[in-house]
Design a protein around this nucleic acid. Structure first.
Lengths: 219, 219
DNA sequence: TTTAATTTTTAGCTTTGACTAAATTAATTT
DNA sequence: AAATTAATTTAGTCAAAGCTAAAAATTAAA
């Protein structure tokens, strides 16, 4: 079944919200999509009629299996394009989201299959988010926020949850990026800041806020 | 100025038609776009109000300089994507048009600039059609149909005007593709067929119809 | 040059997706 | 338990882009 760009954006947003909140409500979806609650209600009816949604009026909603499958397809397209834009075209990872937002709606299965092979079947996008495979399965990443990571243990940066350009700038300054090895040397309870060692560089200190947004997995 | 996908499709079609016919009329544009004359009239009004079109009702129309500039931007995007799909993803050149038709509407100047550099600034797309540069200038290709090409002179295949899969299949069989060297050995006035030699292969014969669709330039 | 045929435009209707304002249902307080 | 507040839905509009059918303008033919 084919979906309009608008429908796809709703599906994607619902997926994201229900991943963290279980069930989704009208207002939060409206906010997430930068639209109004009334518009959301309209679209919910349509998605329900297309059998993507469990929805009883006034009582929240969530994607059913079919909806989730579709969401993962869209997310797969989005993240593959992000990977392409960064790894092949050399764009900054904070600039690619908006463009991938458009590219993700180009729905040719053949295109996506070939793109995936061309990129050598990446598991994560440039922000470290997992890329669903062609069967809609997400690779399991056992990543932990730097804040919770044991001291003196080598970890690999797997993702960064804040994608602002301010964050990017700071990470660049510290030499931190997806795939980079680092370890925590010390933590300061006073303000949550951490002393860390990034690959072979001299030790440095990052704020608690920064640490919360950096995720690593075991080396 | 930003344009909708629909507006862009109209602009592109008008450009194509006016390139061969000077002025365009409502019915031929409707046919070209697979739509109805009434819809065309509506869009013409809109494009006129956006100052892309010279249009007096009942008397045909054509793009003005501003419209032509916009058309070339869209064509540039389309052909760069076609080049990408064939040269990087390894798709067949008869399959890429439909996909490029969607990709061409993703309008990020940064994306197109980077894509162009990544592809090493190609001059022609996989069908041999010239790619406008970033200033909207078309590279001049002095290509001639094989039918008119002098005998015994080495030529390089520059484009193929029929993009059907039947044509592709036949060309593959003869080892003919964009960039391939060949020469005409003999022509038969009876049916217009040509005996040709493709690179270092043994001589073979192609029909007049095939020859009309193959374009070459001097080696 | 009047009539006939063709082309183009207008008028009015449809769908998609969004919006505002009003009404309804649910949740919270008192 | 009634009243207030908050969330959600309905009703009615709007713009984009398409369509059909009818009207108008142009072109061709008699």
């Amino acid at each position: 079944m084919k979906f309009s760009s608008s429908e796809e954006n709703y599906i994607k947003s619902i997926y994201t919200l229900q991943a963290s909140m279980g069930k989704v409500n009208t207002n939060s979806l409206a906010e997430h999509l930068n639209t109004k609650a009334a518009s959301v209600t309209d679209m919910l009816k349509k998605l329900k009629s297309k059998k993507l949604l469990e929805y009883k009026r006034y009582h929240g909603f969530k994607l059913n299996d079919s909806g989730i499958k579709q969401a993962l397809k869209i997310i797969r397209r989005h993240r593959l394009w992000e990977f392409f834009l960064v790894s092949k075209l050399g764009m900054e990872w904070n600039a690619v989201h908006a463009i991938a937002e458009e590219l993700e709606h180009v729905s040719s299965p053949e295109l996506i299959k070939k793109l995936d092979l061309y990129l050598e079947q990446p598991l994560v996008d440039p922000h470290g988010d997992p890329i669903p495979n062609e069967h809609g399965e997400l690779p399991v990443l056992n990543q932990v926020s730097l804040v919770e990571y044991p001291h003196k243990k080598n970890g690999i940066v797997s993702s960064v949850s804040n994608q602002s350009s301010d964050m990017l700038q700071m990470l660049n300054h510290y030499g931190i990026g997806i795939g980079v090895e680092l370890k925590v040397l010390k933590s300061f309870d006073f303000d949550g800041s951490l002393e860390i060692k990034v690959s072979k560089q001299a030790a440095c200190t990052i704020s608690g806020l920064a640490a919360q947004n950096i995720f690593v997995y075991d080396d």
